[in-house]
């Protein structure tokens, strides 16, 4: 899981800040700023490190500009005082820009995870392990429960996923029912053809 890799990496990093800085400096700016898994990982890690004051935001900004990148495209910055967030009045509280492109497209088949989400409150039990179709993409949002995992805001792409009634409730389900859920990218996995369905009680 991405989150576990993050935590382990950071735990190993705290005593090796300079090594990490050098590693950042060696990164090809195109890779750093591209819409890639690595870009998202780096964005999340950066947020974590800035919050823990391992790296100052200004240092990273300077380096990105030096490399020809656009500072505004970097993943969400944590606030200076993580326990008090200044919201603009009438502002979009939860929305955040995300560097990386969404993994899924409308029309794509996905499966809601059935395990590995301990402590996450936003995937109802009835949908776990079930297959659905992406019907909308809502850009990036603060990932709920991320603070509990020491990840700060950790913005993620949000999708509306449509589940057929029979998929959720079996053959006895009422006819012609579709249930739509708004699910974060880490809750989903792509459906591989011929992948066996998990039988949930």
């Amino acid at each position: 899981m991405f989150q576990m890799v993050n935590a382990a990496f950071v735990a190993g990093l705290i005593g090796n800040v300079d090594q990490f800085r050098h590693a950042i400096e060696r990164i090809d700016p195109a890779a750093y700023l591209s819409d890639s898994y690595f870009g998202r990982w780096l964005g999340g890690l950066e947020t974590l490190l800035v919050e823990r004051e391992v790296i100052r935001t200004a240092e990273l900004n300077d380096r990105v500009e030096e490399l020809g990148g656009a500072v505004s495209r970097i993943a969400a910055r944590p606030s200076a005082t993580p326990d008090r967030v200044a919201y603009p009045p009438g502002g979009r509280h939860g929305q955040r820009p995300i560097l990386a492109a969404p993994l899924y497209q409308p029309g794509q088949r996905v499966r809601a995870l059935s395990r590995g989400l301990a402590g996450h409150t936003r995937l109802p039990q009835y949908a776990r392990g079930r297959d659905g179709i992406i019907v909308a993409w809502h850009d990036g949002w603060v990932y709920p429960d991320s603070n509990a995992h020491g990840l700060g805001e950790y913005p993620q792409h949000l999708y509306t996923v449509c589940f057929e009634g029979k998929e959720l409730w079996g053959e006895d389900a009422e006819p012609g029912i579709r249930v739509h859920l708004d699910l974060f990218e880490p809750y989903l996995e792509p459906v591989v053809p011929d992948q066996p369905e998990q039988d949930e009680p």
């Binding site: 008090r84 939860g94 409150t121 709920p144």
Partner: peptide
């Protein structure tokens, strides 16, 4: 929440857990 003490999503998560 509006004063910045916590993001509303954090309250919602707490509510979800409490209800569950």
């Amino acid at each position: 929440s509006d004063a910045g003490c916590f993001p509303w999503a954090d309250f919602q998560s707490s509510l979800i857990r409490t209800i569950a």
